[in-house]
Design a protein around this nucleic acid. Structure first.
Lengths: 236, 236
DNA sequence: CAGGCAGTTTGCGATAGCGCAAAACGGGCC
DNA sequence: GGCCCGTTTTGCGCTATCGCAAACTGCCTG
């Protein structure tokens, strides 16, 4: 297996406060793997045996109801951890992880976790902070779903994606991985039909340019305005 | 200040893996305080200076939008921690905490946190697990808001409250603190009007008995059935 | 290069739940 | 015991959004 260069991961929040020498030791416990686009990394409900760090690509975490309805929990960007079931005391993965682009991940066996945080308590602290940040994002999402109209929620979702994984273009920001209307619907609690209608509308106003699993924000500023507009703001 | 008996808190998840002698040392760093019903413990956006452990009573955490709309993030039951802004790397409290009943809390200054987790790494691990559990609950809530009708969401919310803070009666379960229609609306992403209509309907079927800030589940089993019924299940 | 399929667009009718308004209720406080 | 205020109930019209159906499109594959 190709060895992972410590310099590539040393700056990640997960390893803040860990000495470079130690980092090497940590990485030796991991193996790396490549997942082609549209392959599952783990399935909701499966025994959690490993935890992951995304090095390259993009991963979508989804949660499914017994009746088959699904939401997108989040998109994982390079440098972020996922599948931390062990750390948060879960025996099974609470969500399904799928590579939406060809992706490369580091994989630690769960058995490494207790040893890791014993030797490097900073890792526990760092993880607590990331999980805490995700908790706050979830609360924000709940707040949005409770108080905003669909159009605003879609605007927020796109802006967040652009911030997390946007590729700056000469004229606009492109979301840097394949994403469908359906995916956006599952991020915002609506249907792909409604998302399609909204994006069509925006496209005709020149706010976005989009097509098959592809979205470019041509006028991010106006989308911010849309996102912040309250229901009773004056139209036009 | 009255000293807190270690035996009262020794069994809490927060202190799992901490030796009784050490516990005493931990508690000496805290002070306790009493908050009468309907008083704020901290406000969203304020500088986070302390973190809290609820000993007695009930606390409601709410999050408010710039435009004044509000959701209930969660209800805190005795034995649970809240206001962990420091632990998750937040400088300001992300929510407002209010005592919904006369409440007694332990309060640690944030400055105690780094020392605490250094001396007792188990506390960091335990906190990571509780925060992780809350994250999963949030995801479940998002899933429900995305896929279920209001009636089912209200059913789920009441069942959760009953489980967390239900007082078993001869015939049913009473939610053990004052809670209004408005509160339930803010937990489920709807309006107090709709909650009122739903509860009225249930009351006429003998599923619940309720009044001013008071709810008794008279037939929890049927409410479970309601909660699980999918939109396309046959009526009656 | 043709075909097929996944993803997207669009129309149209149905409706759950909102928003507003007003009345009824109940409990605590003086 | 009576008053007052916060809470709850209920009616009614409205509309954002869903749900279904059908057509369209662009990409990838063979």
């Amino acid at each position: 297996m190709a060895k992972v260069d410590t310099s590539l991961v040393a700056h990640l929040p997960l390893f803040a406060g860990v000495k470079p020498d130690d980092l090497d030791e940590i990485l030796r416990e991991a193996r790396s793997a490549r997942y082609p686009r549209n392959t599952a990394i783990f399935e909701q409900g499966a025994d959690a045996q490993s935890f992951f760090l995304l090095l390259h690509g993009h991963v979508r975490a989804t949660k499914t109801t017994p009746t088959g309805e699904q939401i997108v929990v989040r998109y994982v960007a390079p440098g972020e951890t996922f599948g931390l079931a062990m750390a948060i005391g879960a025996v099974h993965y609470p969500a399904t992880a799928m590579a939406v682009d060809d992706s490369v991940v580091l994989i630690w066996p769960n058995s490494a976790w207790p040893r890791l945080i014993e030797r490097f308590p900073a890792i526990a602290t760092n993880t607590l902070q990331t999980v805490g940040a995700r908790l706050q994002e979830s609360h924000t999402r709940i707040l949005e779903m409770s108080t905003q109209q669909v159009e605003q929620r879609v605007a927020h979702a796109l802006l967040r994606l652009a911030k997390q994984s946007g590729k700056k273009l000469d004229h606009g920001i492109e979301i840097d991985f394949p994403i469908s209307r359906q995916d956006i619907a599952q991020m915002t609690g609506t249907t792909l039909h409604t998302v399609s209608r909204i994006l069509s509308g925006w496209e005709s106003q020149g706010l976005v340019e989009s097509g098959r699993q592809r979205i470019i924000l041509r006028d991010p500023h106006k989308i911010v305005v849309l996102a912040e507009r309250t229901a009773d703001s004056s139209p036009i």
